[in-house]
């Protein structure tokens, strides 16, 4: 079986990135720049390929000049007009169009899926813990909304509700932050699995030797410099 150089290189980059946990070093910076450079190159290649298949071919090979594609292409080219001071204002057109379309598309979906469906769901009182969960959702949503009422001073009943809503929001943010931490742990665990198998284990051994040399250098040599 041949040596898997691709996985070895991938794991070398992972360990070079992790070396930042010890301290900033040249391996980390090489890995950082390589990753960014590779991703930019990949994005450029795929982006150019998209332009070839979705714009160049229909317009110049198939000759579909009288299709809506030409309008989109022209608007897309307007982005480049930002480079010249005199024509910079034209670059706002595609940006405005994109922002408008994105907002309209989002709002259209929000009304049913994220508002109507949630407040009209039939399973509010299903029994046991589910009912308690549903009550918590309703109370947290209502009091959370109260917190964001800025047209009336938070006093009296509204003050109590907004105060409770503040705690509800803090609980949610805390929960979200905690689960994101767990997500980050999962990411490193995934890489560790590959590091503990051939060829990752060889890369780990080399990295360990370099780390030990680095630690000895830091203890014995660096303080004297």
């Amino acid at each position: 079986m041949s040596f898997d150089w691709g996985t070895a290189a991938e794991m070398a980059l992972v360990l070079m990135a992790w070396s930042l946990l010890y301290r900033d070093n040249v391996f980390y910076r090489v890995a950082e720049n390589l990753t960014i450079g590779w991703f930019m190159a990949m994005s450029l290649v795929i982006g150019l390929d998209l332009l070839r298949t979705r714009v160049y071919n229909p317009l110049f090979i198939e000759g579909r000049w009288l299709s809506p594609l030409i309008i989109v292409t022209i608007l897309g080219l307007f982005y480049l007009l930002r480079l010249y001071r005199e024509t910079r204002w034209l670059a706002r057109w595609p940006i405005s169009l994109m922002a408008g379309v994105a907002s309209a598309v989002a709002v259209k979906g929000v009304i049913y899926a994220q508002i109507i469906r949630l407040v009209t769901m039939k399973s509010w009182a299903v029994g046991g813990l589910e009912t308690i969960n549903n009550i918590i959702i309703a109370v947290f949503t209502f009091t959370g909304l109260c917190y964001f009422i800025f047209t009336k001073e938070h006093r009296g009943v509204l003050g109590y509700l907004a105060g409770f809503g503040r705690y509800a929001l803090m609980i949610c943010f805390g929960w979200t932050a905690g689960t994101y931490l767990m997500s980050l742990i999962s990411m490193s665990v995934g890489h560790m699995q590959t590091l503990m198998q051939v060829p990752g284990i060889y890369v780990s051994a080399v990295a360990m030797i370099i780390l030990i040399i680095g630690i000895i250098y830091d203890i014995k040599v660096k303080p004297k410099i």
Binding site: I137, T176, T179, M182
Partner: peptide
């Protein structure tokens, strides 16, 4: 897993 809490209301609905 960080986004699961956000998905729960939609799952229930």
């Amino acid at each position: 897993s960080g986004t699961v809490p956000l998905a729960m209301p939609y799952y229930r609905a």
